[in-house]
């Protein structure tokens, strides 16, 4: 730097090159684009989403159309993945099922992230009695393994004869409800450490309301963590929903989901003779969950490097 270009005393930054301002988040996304495995995962998920939500519009069949003349046909040119015992097109049903499974997975994730981060943030920020109450409830839920809890819920739904159309929504709530405690714990831990940071003292000194401090200052700091957890959470929710539906306790036939379609494998003849009934939904679950988890892992590597294994 020559003497001439020295900025006037009291003025700094005058001669610095103009750089486009980028958030840490923006930088992380650029890093993510370089992670091939994670991007492959993302591509698979997006393709799955497109196929499930747009695919059925191009299908000449509807998911519940019974065709007695076309029972249990192996894959052929008209029915690419064959037909089931009621002559319904398996491909169409797999795609329709994907809509339900993905929606349930996503919706229950949104619910659990919402409840979990809200309660966790409040517990970690206020500490004391509020913290005790919230975290003991969370502990209580954590002591009961999730799956049995879901089974009980599912059985109750059957017992109370809840109409099939509503079951999907109730299953979403159940899954979301089972998942929030773990998330709340993690958010609380982050909050406990963040609230002691100097910039939070500075926020107190500015005379800001608790609500502002909590949601404008603290929560943005844990967004990376939340995004990672949320992504991995979707995969888990899809699996749980499949398990429930497989056992006939989740979403019930005739509404197709990947879980209740695999139920076909319970029948020995279907299992041995008609693999086209259960391989497609099984593969869909497998591919989707693996892809989501790979993508989630990649996200974690860029957003939350401290959590690396």
């Amino acid at each position: 730097m020559s003497l001439n270009s020295t900025p006037l005393p009291g003025t700094i930054g005058a001669k610095q090159p103009l750089a486009k301002s980028s958030s840490l988040f923006g930088q992380s996304m650029q890093k993510l684009l370089k992670n091939k495995l994670a991007i492959t995962g993302l591509v698979v998920v997006v393709m799955m989403l497109l196929a499930c939500f747009i695919g059925p519009f191009f299908s000449p069949y509807t998911d519940n159309k019974v065709n007695m003349a076309m029972m249990n046909k192996a894959p052929n040119l008209k029915h690419w993945l064959g037909t089931d015992a009621l002559g319904r097109d398996v491909l169409t049903r797999v795609l329709q099922a994907g809509r339900i499974s993905l929606t349930v997975g996503f919706a229950s994730m949104v619910l659990s992230v919402f409840i979990g981060s809200l309660l966790g943030a409040i517990a970690g920020y206020y500490r004391g009695i509020v913290d005790q109450v919230i975290m003991r409830i969370a502990d209580l839920l954590l002591t009961i393994p999730g799956l049995p809890l879901l089974f009980i819920g599912g059985s109750l739904l059957s017992e109370w004869k809840v109409p099939t159309e509503y079951r999907m929504y109730i299953v979403m709530f159940m899954l979301g409800f089972v998942n929030w405690p773990g998330l709340a714990r993690m958010v609380r831990g982050q909050m406990l450490s963040l609230r002691e940071r100097e910039f939070m003292q500075a926020a107190v000194v500015l005379g800001l309301r608790d609500r502002r401090k909590l949601f404008n200052h603290l929560l943005p700091n844990i967004f990376p963590l939340l995004i990672v957890i949320a992504t991995l959470n979707i995969g888990g929710s899809i699996l749980s929903e499949s398990v429930l539906s497989f056992f006939g306790l989740g979403v019930m036939a005739p509404t197709p989901t990947w879980g209740n379609m695999i139920d076909a494998a319970n029948n020995l003849i279907d299992f041995q003779e008609r693999p086209w009934l259960w391989i497609p939904p099984g593969f869909s679950i497998f591919a989707t969950v693996i892809a989501i988890n790979i993508f989630g892992d990649g996200l974690r590597d860029v957003l939350d490097p401290k959590q690396k294994r």
């Binding site: 840490l24 100097e198 500075a202 926020a203 200052h217 943005p220 700091n221």
Partner: peptide, 12 residues
């Protein structure tokens, strides 16, 4: 405060 680096919220 003493430490300007840590007195501002890093994500805002």
């Amino acid at each position: 405060f003493q430490e300007p680096m840590s007195s501002l919220n890093p994500v805002l």
